[in-house]
């Protein structure tokens, strides 16, 4: 995949890359019942928090930022296997008709992506005021799972329930979904809010996120990608890695770094500063050797 060498050329919107060697090279397919699957390297693109419909001083170019990101992704030499949007597709509105108009416009814009395998999930701006009703009209279920080239992907909705919870019903579904996955299978979770307590003072958490992490903990290769905080952040809960993505509207300050979580002021000299998307490449790791030392004699 030569395109990886072009990652750093994505300067227009600050594209970045994460490599998931821990996901790849696993001998088993995600399913317990499936035969051994040959692993194939691939990559996907994560975009997040486009807040379509936002108008304000924190991004005077808001009518164009998402369209520019689509163009940048389309210009990648090698196209990703699929693309995922991790929530806050649109900016919130109290008006149900306006909410649908924004979702419709968003869908029209991203329909220009060359890659047609695109996965969506809601953020609280899309779904919290109507429990995800409008989102589902346009994009279908807000939580689901799918397999791709030996990796099991799970989309967790932590915004449609009141108060940013996953909820008992979805946690039961998650437990059931994981029940069909081998413990050493590579698993990727997509969600909007952090599943862990990143900055509770700023409400950067999921109230029952710890329950989801508990369900994932027995699985040895789990990585979580999320949005919500409009910046990169990398965190470990045990062996589970959590990576947040930049936004496509305005950056937010580092977690807990100031009193209020107000957006970083727009810089006219660098209008796309702090914005961007990422590529995630699953690649086969280098050979690993387990070493055991023994004495001359064993008793």
């Amino acid at each position: 995949m030569t395109d990886r060498r072009d990652f750093m050329k994505l300067a227009a919107l600050g594209g970045g890359a994460i490599f998931l060697s821990g996901l790849a090279g696993c001998a088993q397919s995600p399913s317990k019942s499936s035969p051994m699957a040959a692993y194939d390297e691939f990559y996907f693109v994560q975009l997040s928090d486009s807040h379509w419909g936002y108008k304000g001083p924190d991004n005077p170019d808001s009518a164009n930022t998402l369209k520019k990101a689509v163009a940048t992704v389309n210009a990648l030499e090698t196209q990703p296997d699929f693309i995922v949007f991790t929530g806050d597709l649109t900016h919130t509105t109290d008006d149900p008709l306006e909410r649908r108009r924004r979702l419709s416009e968003f869908r029209d814009i991203v329909s220009a992506l060359r890659v047609k395998d695109v996965h969506f999930m809601p953020g609280e701006h899309d779904a919290s005021l109507d429990r995800g009703a409008a989102f589902k009209e346009f994009f279908g279920p807000s939580n689901y799972s799918f397999d791709h080239k030996g990796v099991h992907f799970i989309v967790v909705d932590n915004v449609s329930e009141p108060g940013a919870t996953i909820g008992a019903a979805q946690l039961a579904w998650l437990q059931s979904d994981l029940g069909s996955v081998a413990k050493d299978a590579p698993i990727v979770v997509f969600t909007h809010r952090p599943l862990f307590d990143l900055a509770p003072k700023w409400d950067w958490a999921t109230r029952d996120g710890a329950q989801a992490i508990d369900l994932l903990m027995p699985y040895r290769h789990v990585t979580v990608f999320y949005g919500h905080i409009h910046q990169e952040n990398h965190h470990m809960t045990g062996h589970i890695a959590h990576h947040s993505a930049k936004s496509l509207i305005f950056p937010l300050p580092a977690p807990g770094s100031q009193e209020k979580r107000t957006p970083v002021a727009w810089d006219p000299q660098s209008p796309n500063k702090g914005l961007g998307f990422r590529e995630v490449e699953a690649e086969v790791p280098e050979a690993e050797y387990k070493i055991a030392e023994y004495p001359v004699t064993r008793t």
């Binding site: 900016h91 919130t92 509105t93 109290d94 609280e124 701006h125 919290s128 005021l129 915004v159 009141p162 108060g163 940013a164 003072k201 700023w202 409400d203 109230r207 009193e259 209020k260 979580r261 107000t262």
Partner: peptide, 14 residues
């Protein structure tokens, strides 16, 4: 510090 943690609209974060 305290805050509203039930998303309530455009200026919820404030």
């Amino acid at each position: 510090e305290f805050h509203c943690d039930n998303f309530c609209g455009a200026d919820h974060e404030q």
